[in-house]
Nucleic acid binder design. Structure first.
Lengths: 200, 200
DNA sequence: TATAAAAAACCGTCCAGTCTGTTTTTAACA
DNA sequence: TGTTAAAAACAGACTGGACGGTTTTTTATA
């Protein structure tokens, strides 16, 4: 690869990463192009050279974030499948992710999309692809359930964690969330088939 | 009551209501004082006369919203208690609320609070009071459960609905959400004691 | 030298908060 | 009761700053 091309790619990468940091730390309506540029240690000119608008930048950053989440999750589910980690630990991992950067950025983005049609249509295919990937993962997580049942149970789980993530803004009380999570683990366990050879 | 006082109260009420409408329709970072004033059919001068800052306005509007939700919910739970409506219908009512104005405005506010310490501390007592009221309501909803169990189950429920509310931004598919909600109703039902005289 | 990348100056817009002026209501008092 | 002064409610112009996007200039590579 040519040197110029390398440098260009590196700059893009730095800017995207910085955008995620700023989104998570400052929130969308405190995010400005100069801030992102400064976080990326790049001039505003360089930023606008690579990204034609703020919306485009954010959309691409979002894509990076969702991809990383899917990869992490896939690895975790593989571990469950191979018996390396328990289902409970896998859920803990998802909760960790959902109470951290991913979910907050997602929220910022979702609210923006809610009020800006153009942005929303740019983002919708991305989100749909994300959910399709998730659905595949859920099926692999619960091979003993029907695909539909696995998806419903895990969509419940994800939405529960989403809600908990939201509440965690105002309620910084790990024991409260742990209790909820433990209760949910129990309930989820009750929903799994006990035997080996039947589909629930 | 003196006429001036009446007029003053009416203006405040109009502005607060308009603020909620704008928050829900336009989102926080498209909300400006002139927009709220125009929505309320009041001059910007009148608005600033009654509310010393944008943050104060939003905080007070939030208070109105939460109070109304608590009242509605309390009435609904009374209906369940009196056998006028089923638990399922009560949940439907909460879901209706959560997929509407209340929750979206709450989200906007929560994200703002997440990044602005002063705003957050102004809002925290309000939110805590709100949750305390909710906890009382949950106990009354499930008199056959221990208070702790009732609260855990309903906090799970609320967080599930929160998450579903969030997802509804991108996924406008009522049947999907209905399936989730039905599944949850079943699960919740399984968690309730069958007998009459024991605490679970 | 030609071209891509990066930097920085610049412009138009928007908005919260301030300030000044005007109208309406209330209170005091002769 | 009629008059007037004070206070409250309201209206709108203005300001200072932030920001997104554009354009121009400089630098580095091929």
């Amino acid at each position: 690869m040519k040197w110029q091309q390398q440098k260009s790619l590196a700059t893009r990468e730095k800017v995207l990463r910085a955008a995620l940091v700023c989104l998570e730390r400052d929130g969308f309506h405190h995010l400005s192009l100069v801030r992102v540029a400064s976080e990326a240690e790049v001039s505003k000119g360089a930023l606008t050279h690579h990204f034609s608008s703020k919306d485009e930048l954010i959309t691409l950053a979002m894509e990076v974030l969702l991809d990383e989440f899917v990869q992490t999750l896939r690895a975790s589910v593989d571990d469950v499948h191979a018996g390396r980690v328990s289902l409970d630990e896998c859920l803990d991992g998802i909760w960790h992710f959902m109470s951290g950067q991913l979910y907050m950025v997602t929220l910022e983005i979702a609210l923006k999309a809610r009020h800006e049609a153009a942005f929303k249509s740019a983002l919708t295919p991305l989100v749909q692809h994300f959910h399709a990937q998730l659905n595949d993962i859920w099926i692999r997580l619960f091979p003993d359930l029907t695909p539909e049942r696995a998806q419903v149970l895990m969509n419940l789980t994800m939405n529960l964690l989403r809600g908990m993530g939201t509440q965690s803004v105002f309620r910084e009380d790990p024991s409260y969330f742990n209790e909820l999570l433990d209760t949910w683990k129990n309930i989820l366990d009750q929903q799994l088939p006990r035997g080996k050879d039947h589909k629930y």
